Amino acid sequence: MTENFICLLLPLLVISQTFPAAGEPDPMKYPYRIEKLSHFRFYWHNIFSGPNPTVVNIVPPLEHKNKTTWLFGKVDMIDDPLTETPEAGSRLLGRAQGLYAMASQEEIGMLMAMDFVFSTGKYNGSTLTILGRNPALEKVREMPVIGGSGLFRFARGYVKASTYSYDIKTGDAVVEYNVYVLHF
């Protein structure tokens, strides 16, 4: 029994000696910090029209003969402005960069994968990462915050998205985002 246990441990000892740990973080760089909850509200501008669209289709939807599939399979890449108010010319707070894919055959349901990249104030250079399902026709949609960088290291939380305006002719949309995030 003891021999089997030693045989199991031997590869672990070899691995730990072959690949040394990167080291523990210096506790002086990270003094005891209290996690706080922050709430942000901004507006996401998804622009298909005009000379500078912020959305580019990278995978078109597949044609399906006998049924409406709500653009199932379509994938769009985004670099959308995040503004302080719903007006396009309002103060730019950052950008939403990433992609969304039409992931439902029965409704307008998207898989969103994006970073909110902040460019103003104390959060300049920090990011929050969103990954989740967005059923676009619901009044309020909730998606998780799964991480971040800069001042948002170890972030977790959620966003609530509500469509502020949508132009059916162009596909342009303005969406209000309320972000609730725990961070240090």
Results as ranks from 00 to 15, higher is better:
Y177L: 14
F19L: 12
I108D: 09
M143P: 03
F116K: 01
H64G: 00
R33E: 15
A113F: 10
R95T: 06
G148P: 13
L151A: 13
E107M: 09
R156E: 06
F152C: 04
V56S: 12
G125N: 11
N46I: 06
T83D: 09
R141N: 10
A101F: 03
G23M: 05
H45M: 05
F5P: 00
H45N: 06
T69D: 05
V75D: 02
T163I: 04
A136H: 05
N66M: 02
V175D: 07
T2P: 01
V179F: 01
G121W: 07
D80A: 13
S104T: 04
Q97V: 13
Y166Q: 13
P53V: 04
K29W: 03
M102P: 00
G98K: 01
R156W: 02
L37C: 11
G23N: 04
P144C: 05
V179I: 12
R133Q: 14
N4R: 04
H39F: 01
V159F: 01
A173W: 02
G125C: 09
L82K: 09
D80K: 10
R133D: 04
P51M: 03
Q17W: 07
Y158N: 10
N178A: 06
F184P: 15
H45C: 10
V55M: 10
P135M: 12
L13Y: 09
F154C: 06
K67E: 15
V117Y: 12
I108G: 00
M77A: 14
N134E: 08
R33N: 14
I34M: 11
Y164N: 04
D115N: 15
F116P: 03
F72S: 00
V145I: 15
K139A: 14
A22Y: 04
P60E: 14
V181D: 02
A155L: 13
D172N: 15
L10R: 12
F19K: 13
E176C: 09
V59L: 15
K122S: 06
D80S: 13
Y164C: 04
I78L: 05
A113E: 08
M143L: 15
Y180Q: 02
A22E: 09
G125T: 07
K67P: 00
L137V: 05
G171Q: 07
T129S: 13
G132A: 11
L137I: 08
M77H: 10
V179Q: 01
G147P: 10
P31Y: 09
T120I: 08
G147N: 06
S149H: 02
K65C: 07
K169A: 14
L13H: 13
I146N: 10
C7V: 01
I78W: 01
G23F: 03
H183K: 10
K67D: 00
R156V: 01
L111K: 02
T170P: 12
D80G: 06
T170Y: 08
T69V: 14
N52H: 14
G171T: 10
W70K: 00
E35I: 07
P11Q: 06
E24V: 11
T54C: 00
E87R: 11
